[in-house]
Every structure is written in structure tokens, then in C-alpha cells.
Computed example of a mutant assay.
Amino acid sequence: MTSLYPPMADMFGDMGVSIAYASDEEIYAQGEETDLVYQVQSGAVRASRLTSDGRRQIAGFYYPGDLFGLETGPAHLSSAEALGPTRVLVARRSTMRHRGEAGHGLERAIWQATGSELERAHEHMMLLARKSALEKVAGFLSDVAKRQRSVWSELAMSRQDIADHLGLSIETVSRMFSQLQSEGLIALEGCRRFRVASPARLAARAAP
């Protein structure tokens, strides 16, 4: 989930096409070729995959400025869907390779972002294996709040999405939200809006 610096964002925009997606509309499918690179312009995106036994795993969520679809193999290991009305900038890597130094500079930035994405995938795997339910939810909310940088943060995804991302049941996620609220770490407004009352304490709760 890596954002481009403004000059790189301008370069990417010069090479890409902006496409609007409706809520839950597929952006790319699991198994589709990976020649395209994507950047969220508005809205949010969910990356998910189906396991061999039919279960859904959510690999991550992407917000405005984020690059996604950065996989090193020939085919996507997950699919991507819009979470609500979303606009995405789409460009071909092959186009970048033919745009001289600007294209090569952007390609290098994309490879750096790919490395960061692999790191986050490893961290997410460790989170699923080692953290308690409360630590997982606290860490997730802390990350969303940091990324949105506003007093009140909006959750573009459903509680079921969060549960599938963290490897929990939806009932457990709801209980952890309530516990964090009762401890005075977050304030809730409906199902999709929250405020972090104590960033330091919430971050401490996320530590194993």
C-alpha cells in the first residue's frame, strides 16, 4: 500500500487511464495477467483471494494514492474489487518501458513499492499467526487512523471484510470494537466511523 510522491504521481498519470468502478465491481480477477499497474484516485479497494476450500482471504485494503496489483509473478494471486464508488488510474508496464528515463524512473519506484508490499504481506502473515484478537483489531484501527490523518476515520470496508482480513469471526471483531470502546481507546459513531481517543494506548494494545 505505497503512495507515490507528487512528481512520480504526475508521471504515472501521464501514462495511465482513469477508470470509474461501482461498489463491489471487480477491477481485476485472481489469475489475470499482471502487466497493468493500478493507483487509487478516490474511494477504496479490497484485494481478496479464494482458497482451494472456497474460503475468502482478504490480503489488504488500498486508499487514494496507493499503488496496488504489484505482484512479481505472471498472474495475480488475488482479485481486486472497489469498496464503494471508486476511481482508479491504470497503466501498462510495457508502456512505461517505452517512455525513456521517465518510464524507467517510475518502473524503479514500482519495484521499490513491490518490495514494500511483500514486506507487508510477511508482516500480515505474522499478525495472523501470533497476535490475539484484541491486538489484531487494535492494530488494524491504529493503521487506518494513521493513514487517514483526520479526527474521525471512516471504514470503507464492512465488519465481515475486517474479520476476513484478520482471520477472525465477525462476532469477535464486534466484541473487540466494543472492548476498545469500553476501555476508552476509541469512540464509535455507527458501524463505519471511529475516533482514536488515545493513539499511544491503542498502539500499545496492538503490540503482542
Results as ranks from 00 to 15, higher is better:
Arg205Ala: 15
Glu25Ile: 03
Arg97Thr: 05
Phe68Cys: 03
Glu33Met: 12
Ser158His: 11
Val144Glu: 01
Val151Cys: 05
Arg175Val: 04
Arg92Val: 03
Ser79Pro: 04
Arg49Met: 06
Thr72Gln: 15
Gly105Asn: 12
Gln181Pro: 01
Leu106Ser: 04
Gly65Glu: 01
Ala47Met: 11
Ala138Ser: 06
Glu33Leu: 10
Leu106Gln: 05
Asp66Lys: 02
Leu77His: 15
Leu180Trp: 01
Met8Asp: 15
Leu70Gly: 06
Arg97Tyr: 14
Ala9Tyr: 00
Ser158Phe: 09
Arg97Lys: 12
Gly60His: 12
Gly115Gln: 15
Glu32Asn: 15
Leu67Ile: 11
Ala59Val: 13
Arg93Asn: 14
Ser174Leu: 07
Leu70Pro: 07
Thr72Asp: 14
Arg87Ser: 11
Ser169Asp: 12
Lys131Met: 09
Gln179Thr: 13
Ser132His: 14
Phe194Trp: 06
Ala156Thr: 07
Trp111Gly: 08
Ser94Val: 09
Ser158Gly: 07
Leu50Ala: 12
Gly100Thr: 12
Gly100Tyr: 03
Glu171Asn: 06
Ile58Ala: 04
Arg130Ala: 07
Val151Gly: 10
Arg159Val: 07
Met15Cys: 09
Cys191Asn: 10
Pro74Ser: 09
Trp111Met: 06
Cys191Pro: 09
Leu180Val: 01
Thr95Lys: 05
Arg99Leu: 06
His104Pro: 11
Ala82Tyr: 00
Arg149Ser: 02
Asp24Glu: 15
Val151Gln: 09
Ala187Asn: 08
Val17Glu: 15
Ile186Arg: 00
Glu25Pro: 05
Met11Ala: 15
Ile58Gln: 02
Leu188Asp: 09
Arg175Tyr: 08
Thr72Trp: 14
Lys131His: 11
Ala80His: 05
Gly31Glu: 05
Ile110Asn: 00
Leu166Met: 03
Ser153Leu: 00
Glu135Asp: 10
Arg46Met: 11
Ala109Val: 15
Ala204Ser: 05
Leu36Thr: 06
Leu127Glu: 07
Leu4Phe: 08
Asp66Ile: 01
Ala163Val: 05
Ala47Ser: 15
Pro85Asp: 14
Pro199Leu: 05
His104Phe: 04
Asp164Trp: 14
Met157Thr: 04
Leu155Ser: 01
Ser52Leu: 14
Ala206Tyr: 02
Ala102Ser: 15
Thr72Ala: 11
Asp53Glu: 14
Ser132Tyr: 04
Ala197Phe: 02
Gly60Gln: 14
Leu67Pro: 01
Leu70Glu: 14
Arg55Leu: 14
Lys131Leu: 14
Arg147Val: 00
Met176Thr: 09
Met15Gly: 07
Gln148Asp: 01
Thr51Phe: 07
Phe140His: 00
Ser94Asn: 13
Leu67Thr: 02
Ser79Phe: 11
Ala109Lys: 13
